[in-house]
Nucleic acid binder design. Structure first.
Length: 257
DNA sequence: CTGCAGGCCCTTA
DNA sequence: TAAGGGCCTGCA
């Protein structure tokens, strides 16, 4: 077991943030957290979090996953100094949010599923998908899986997209390792060559799967914030370097605040 | 039982 | 470049 003391990290908030879909609640303040082929139990009490895994696994997997080397204090301080009262309130509300550094393939599949969908159903769909596959399915597994079996998962019209993207990963016309080396702009363009990945989903993948913190996914919730709080126009440039973090605060505050 | 839900694709103008 | 219709289907 590994016990750490953290600031700017609240597991409950992150579980409810909509950026990840495989936080399975075990009890109060306790989750089974899955990412890619890894899984860990975590328990939070105040600023202390216990991870039920070896120190080696913690250091090689979870420390990175929770973005522990990134300084969120600076962002908060910048936002407070900017005089933007809505953002300040959003930061105070979602004080424990972080950008998770998630498994790339899982992020791609999950956010393709997320389109025109709600969080409850996204979680259930991904859960069923993992159940039939025995784990979060690789591209190979998704190509091999009989369509009838995939249909039972309830992906709806997104099934074709996922099949197609999986096939392209398999035949290497869509190269994830190449994607990992790209800068933000090139990554977005490359992602959008895939059917089923548009601007919003590409930005989510860039943010959560490629750790491009300048990505700024604009979904219906963010649109509502921009319309109601900023008169339809929001200038992200003062926070461009970590726009995606700002997006998380806005999104979480608008949905849960 | 209806209508919606963290978009995307395709067609028109 | 923009605007509009259709899409699967579980869940509220």
């Amino acid at each position: 077991m590994v016990v750490i003391t953290v600031c700017d990290l609240d597991l409950q908030q992150i579980a409810d943030s909509g950026q990840c879909f495989r936080f399975y609640p075990l009890g109060s303040n306790s989750w089974l957290i899955k990412s890619g082929c890894y899984a860990v139990e975590a328990f939070q009490q105040g600023r202390e979090i216990s991870f039920y895994c070896s120190e080696a696994e913690f250091n090689s997997v979870w420390k990175n996953y929770f973005d522990l080397d990134y300084d969120y204090q600076k962002i908060k301080s910048d936002i407070f100094k900017s005089g933007d009262l809505y953002l300040a309130a959003a930061v105070n509300f979602g004080y424990g949010l972080r950008i998770l550094r998630q498994d790339l393939w899982e992020t791609i599949v999950s956010f393709v599923i997320s389109q025109r969908n709600n969080i409850t159903r996204i979680k259930n769909t991904i859960s069923r998908l993992c159940q039939v596959a025995g784990q979060f399915p690789s591209a190979q597994q998704l190509v091999d899986m009989p369509v009838s079996e995939l249909k039972s998962v309830g992906l709806g019209y997104r099934l074709e997209y996922i099949k197609s993207i999986s096939q392209n990963v398999r035949n290497a016309s869509f190269d994830l390792n190449k994607l990992r080396t790209m800068n933000y702009q090139n990554a977005i363009e490359y992602l959008k060559t895939q059917k089923g990945i548009g601007d919003k989903v590409a930005n989510c993948i860039a943010l959560f799967g490629l750790n491009k913190k300048n990505a700024f996914p604009i979904d219906t919730w963010i649109k509502r914030v921009i319309d109601s709080q900023y008169g339809g126009q929001f200038d992200i440039t003062p926070f461009a370097e970590y726009a995606g973090v700002v997006q998380q605060y806005m999104f979480f505050y608008r949905r849960n605040g």
